[in-house]
Design a protein around this nucleic acid. Structure first.
Lengths: 134, 134
DNA sequence: AGGTTATTTAACTAATAGGCTAAGTACAGA
DNA sequence: TCTGTACTTAGCCTATTAGTTAAATAACCT
């Protein structure tokens, strides 16, 4: 199994059965039996999928009599989304527009201050990460 | 290899080497040699990671003399982000605030209309999905 | 043509994932 | 305490993954 949290999270998401389980859980907490119902698959298989999801931090489980209700756990989702967010500039129109706006504001600000020093092209690492909205 | 696009995308993201490659590519298009440089790993191994990323739709490649420059391909990122977006309600504060606002507005609307019918607790499936922003 | 550089393909290996059936555990209720 | 329900664990099998080295391909350079 993957070592770092982000890897196990993405690995857990890389299975259609598990994604379907998560989609069901988005509607609300439920039991293993109910989660298993739509699938043409043995109960142990579902049980293992749930274990993978739990290990990945995507769900949490508790005990209630003989049931083991599952629910969505936010943290892993947030981290996966946060990582993808670093690439948002590449596809999100509004992100680009916002980004451009921020660039404009920075440029305007810079106009009042002394100009920044230029750096070599090859080694330059412009940090454009972080979410600008929300 | 995974069958559906979303599965292969998430599977591709579930490896730290591949994520590091993508992070490097976020800084700009580059060659296989330069991508391989930071890793203590054979070139064929990197080549295969790139193949996985390409197959997943996360990068695209072209030819330029004897080099094969790689760059980020937006589509797969967008789809992965879109899927995660269905769960944004669970962790995004501002999403919740917006959601709450919409609830308020609906409630206000409902105040002018006849009251809604109550449903049984056990079988209730509160649908809170769908993206409210974007 | 012949060499150098950049990259991929082939063949092999070890580890992991995901499915199954059968057996085990935990709790509820008679 | 015995039975049923709701799971989980164990043991097995097969396919896939991620790495290796060695060899092949592709394009430039002399």
């Amino acid at each position: 199994m993957a070592l770092d949290p982000l890897s196990s999270t993405f690995a857990a998401l890389a299975d259609p059965t598990r994604r379907a389980i998560l989609a069901r859980l988005a509607l609300g907490e439920t039991s293993v039996m109910e989660l298993a119902e739509p699938f043409d698959m043995s109960l142990p298989a579902i049980s293992r999928h749930l274990k993978v999801l739990e290990h990945a931090g995507l769900i949490s489980r508790s005990r209630e009599a003989q049931w083991r209700p599952c629910r969505i756990a936010p943290v892993a989702f947030k981290q996966a989304d946060g990582w993808l967010g670093n690439f948002r500039q590449f596809w999100d129109e509004s992100f680009n527009r916002l980004d451009g706006l921020l660039e404009e504001m920075k440029a305007e600000e810079a106009a009042k201050a002394p100009p920044r020093t230029k750096r070599k092209v090859k080694a330059t690492r412009e940090k454009k990460s972080g979410r600008t909205r929300g």
